[in-house]
Design a protein around this nucleic acid. Structure first.
Lengths: 213, 213
DNA sequence: AATTTTTTTGACCGATTGGAAAAATTCTAG
DNA sequence: CTAGAATTTTTCCAATCGGTCAAAAAAATT
């Protein structure tokens, strides 16, 4: 009953599923570059290889294309953090969190930029979630990290800013990709850049910059 | 003669200087939130407290408002890096670079976001500068850092990624301000947040997360 | 005070925007 | 093959966009 209702609300034929995917894919390209306000339906339609009215047959407004993209992202984005295991060893646990986050930057740069765009304009579509789901998750993980620190398994620092610094350093490679590439030149391909980044971040987070005496 | 010419090219009366400043100030507000394409002249005009045609009397196009803002920024933005002194002690030198960069994030968040917006859309107005001025400066400073490492005054890591990580962590507090605030709650004011960030970044970059044995 | 220059306003323009409506087409189930 | 549903195209619309222009108003100069 309710299942029928739900399916009736968003009826999905084969072609609908396909085209909706194509549209979201195209919209991700466009929105991630220009943000919501800077993107146009025509632009998305062209990227999706269809006419604007045809696109509007599948999503009835610009907002309706944008919203599911956002909803999808935050979840994906926080998955690596959710996976951080309180039962594991602190340093390897954090190390692999950084690694996973960096891989997401490499594999989903558009998603990262879409998220960044949303933050820059004040996250109007995210505001509630940030203060509830996100905050709760970070609070929970911060507590775990604090526990590790109390056990002497981790240097004592602010766990919140630790998480911020992991977000910042990893996402930087997606969001500021242009800058990173300009500075590094084309001597090293994308894979190489991410390998170097991974190595550096390991060093930074594990030992910092002080020389071993 | 040439001076007269130059002044004649951009004649500046008292009221022109003032209004141009007001406009750029308002434009920074708007552009930093919505990016170039997402911002409208009307929006800027309203923020500047004048009519659109009046604004266009001072800047003849949207581009003409945007361009000087960008030009102004990159210079300001790289100043802290320029100040990094090869003759100084490595660790304090890097530490104070981080501090200066963090202060810029605190004091000029809109500039930071404008810059981020420009990067996200592929930095069309920055492309040349990134590959010349920026790359040269970073190359130069990377060489200095490498020298320090060779002298054993600094742990051996990739100097480029070190610089990236400093950019990323410090700018994060401006660009993702909304998220940072949502997570930290209002228990601690803006000053407190930046103090905590400064302390954490010192710890991270100097010693990393490994516990002292 | 008269005049010239600078600033502001209001009315307007063509292009682009997000979107609606309906006709034309294609697909699919019987 | 055919009726009905799903999809696509064509045409259109009001609002907003970046920007122009001439006239009015305000300042500055004489």
């Amino acid at each position: 009953m309710t299942t029928d209702e739900a399916e009736a609300t968003r009826p999905v034929t084969r072609i609908q599923r396909e085209k909706q995917e194509v549209i979201l894919e195209a919209a991700l390209d466009v929105f991630s570059k220009f943000g919501f306000r800077g993107s146009t339906i025509d632009q998305i339609a062209e990227a999706a290889g269809m006419s604007k009215p045809n696109l509007l047959y599948y999503f009835k407004s610009k907002e309706d294309i944008h919203a599911p993209l956002l909803a999808r992202i935050l979840d994906t984005w926080l998955e690596p953090l959710r996976e951080m295991d309180p039962a594991g060893d602190p340093l390897p646990e954090i190390q692999s969190y950084i690694r996973r986050k960096l891989e997401m930057s490499r594999d989903f740069p558009r998603e990262s930029r879409l998220f960044a765009n949303e933050m820059l304009r004040g996250a109007p579509g995210f505001y509630d979630i940030l203060h509830t789901d996100l905050k709760n998750l970070v609070d929970e993980k911060a507590k775990i990290i604090k526990g590790w620190m109390a056990q002497g398994k981790l240097a004592k620092t602010d766990p919140y800013h630790l998480i911020f610094s992991i977000w910042a350093t990893t996402q930087h490679y997606a969001d500021f990709d242009i800058q990173v590439r300009a500075v590094l030149g084309r001597e090293r391909g994308a894979e190489g850049r991410f390998e170097d980044a991974a190595r550096f971040l390991d060093q930074l987070f594990l030992h910092g910059l002080s020389p071993k005496k």
